[in-house]
C-alpha cells in the first residue's frame, strides 16, 4: 500500500502553499500534549492532531469519498491512467533535482528524460519506452539525507499526515512544479489549479478499499493512520525496494518486540 507516499506526491502539486504555511504557524501555537498522555512518543501535538484528523475525516465523508467513488465508476481506466501519468510527470522536475541533491544521479537522469519526452503531452501519455521505474524523491527526503531531524508528527488540514520535515519539503517541492514556468497563461493556470483537487480524488480512488479499511474498520483510525504513515515514509527514506527482503530498521523494531516477549 503506497498510501501516504502518494499523498506526499499530491502535496507537491498543491498550489495552496498557504495551507502548509498556515498549518505550520497554527501548530506552532498549539500547546503540546504532555508526554504521559500521548499514545505515541513522536506525536507531540496529539490532542490538536486528533481534532484535525476528525475534521479531515468529515471532509472525506462529505466530499472526497463520494467523489472518488463516482470517479472510479465513471471515468474509464484509460482516462484514470492518463491523469495518474500527468500527476507523476508533474513531480519529475522535483524528483530530478532532489535525486541530484541526494547523489542518486541515475534516478535524476531517468526523471529528466521522462520529463522531457513526456512533456510533449504534458505527461498525459507515457511516451517513454524505458522499463526502469523512476523512484520519486521529494525535498523532505533530501532534508533527511542531510540529517535534518524529522521533527514532530503533524496532521495537516486536508493534506493529512506529515512530519515537520516532510511538510517543509512540500513547500519547496511546490516551487518545482513544471507548470510554474509557464507563468500566468490561462491554460497553465487551469491545469495547475486543477492538479490539487484532481490529485486528491485520484489518490483517494486509487486507494479506495485500503483507505476505507483504515477509516471504518480500525480500533483507532487515527493511530493506525499514524503508524501507516511512519512506516511508509521510513520505507521511502531507506529506499527499500519491493524485491529486497526486509531492512535493518524493521529488524530493530522486532528486536524490541522480542525483548518484550521474554
Amino acid at each position: 500500500m503506497k498510501l501516504y507516499s502518494e499523498l506526499d506526491g499530491i502535496g507537491a502539486h498543491l498550489s495552496a502553499a498557504g495551507i502548509l504555511i498556515a498549518a505550520l504557524v497554527a501548530l506552532s501555537g498549539c500547546s503540546a500534549t504532555p508526554p504521559t498522555e500521548r499514545s505515541d512518543a513522536r506525536d507531540r501535538y496529539e490532542d490538536a492532531n486528533r481534532k484535525v484528523f476528525a475534521f479531515n475525516m468529515g471532509v472525506d465523508s462529505y466530499v472526497l469519498e463520494p467523489v472518488a467513488s463516482g470517479y472510479r465508476n465513471t471515468v474509464p481506466e484509460g482516462g484514470r491512467t492518463a491523469i495518474d501519468n500527468h500527476l507523476r510527470w508533474a513531480s519529475m522536475p522535483s524528483t530530478a533535482i532532489n535525486s541530484t541533491l541526494q547523489g542518486k544521479f541515475e534516478n535524476a537522469a531517468l526523471a529528466s528524460l521522462n520529463f522531457l519526452v513526456n512533456g510533449l503531452t504534458l505527461g498525459f501519455a507515457d511516451l517513454s519506452e524505458d522499463d526502469r521505474e523512476v523512484q520519486r524523491e521529494d525535498f523532505g527526503q533530501t532534508l533527511a539525507a542531510y540529517d535534518v531531524p524529522e521533527g514532530s508528527y503533524l496532521m495537516v488540514p486536508v493534506l493529512g499526515p506529515r512530519t515537520t520535515r516532510s511538510l517543509a519539503g512540500n513547500v519547496v517541492d511546490i516551487v518545482m512544479n513544471p507548470l510554474q514556468i509557464f507563468g500566468t497563461s490561462t491554460t497553465a493556470d487551469t491545469v495547475r489549479t486543477a492538479q490539487a483537487p484532481v490529485g486528491a480524488v485520484s489518490f483517494r480512488a486509487n486507494n479506495f478499499d485500503a483507505f476505507n479499511d483504515v477509516k471504518y474498520n480500525s480500533l483507532d483510525p487515527y493511530a493506525r493512520t499514524r503508524s501507516v504513515y511512519y512506516q511508509t515514509r521510513l520505507g521511502l527514506l531507506e529506499d527499500r525496494v519491493a524485491d529486497r527482503a526486509g531492512s535493518a530498521v524493521s529488524e530493530d523494531e522486532f528486536d524490541s518486540l522480542f525483548e518484550e516477549a521474554k
Partner: peptide, 24 residues
C-alpha cells in the same frame, strides 16, 4: 509471525494501534 506488504508490517501496525488504545 508477520506479513509485510509494500513496506507496511501488519504486526507493527496492529501493535502500535493497540498500544495507542491502551495509552489513551
Amino acid at each position: 509471525f508477520d506479513i509485510e506488504i509494500e513496506n507496511l508490517s501488519l504486526l507493527v501496525t496492529q501493535k502500535q494501534e493497540n498500544v495507542a488504545v491502551i495509552r489513551k
